[in-house]
Amino acid sequence: MTINESQDEIIEEFELFDDWADKYEYIIDLGKKLKGLPEEQKTEDNIIKGCQSRVWLNARKEDESLVFEADSEAIIVKGLVNMLIRVLSGHTPQEIAKADLYFMEKIGMSQHLAQTRSNGLASMVKQMKNYAIAYSLKN
């Protein structure tokens, strides 16, 4: 599945919800399902600090693709992280670097990437892209 196919799939899933609570319950569920990171990987190197909550991001290369694992102490952020990983993880660094992430806005969650939230999520997306750029330069 391409990055955009995954995004479209998420957008379709969210079309089923007609009120905010259903939508958030789904995100909370995704947050609970995200495996997260073991404590020893929640290091200062992996941390993305936000004013509200912390996010930890791990990236590694598997064959040609870049695999992300992440965690957060806030469950809604964790749910959103789950979706970002679903969309981006397992693709080549080149694909990730040039990906246009439109699904957050389409599902009405773009405010979570806004500056005011200061929750590390926006920085995480930037960091995912930075990893991708760094790995694509390496090759």
Binding site: Y24, C51, Q52, S53, E73, A74, I76, V77, H112, N119
Partner: peptide, 21 residues
């Protein structure tokens, strides 16, 4: 429950509180 989750879910119910440090 993390305070950020409280803040987000209250905002969705029209209640503005501050969360964080």
């Amino acid at each position: 429950i993390h305070h950020q989750d409280i803040g987000v879910l209250l905002d969705n119910q029209g209640v503005a509180v501050r969360t964080g440090h």
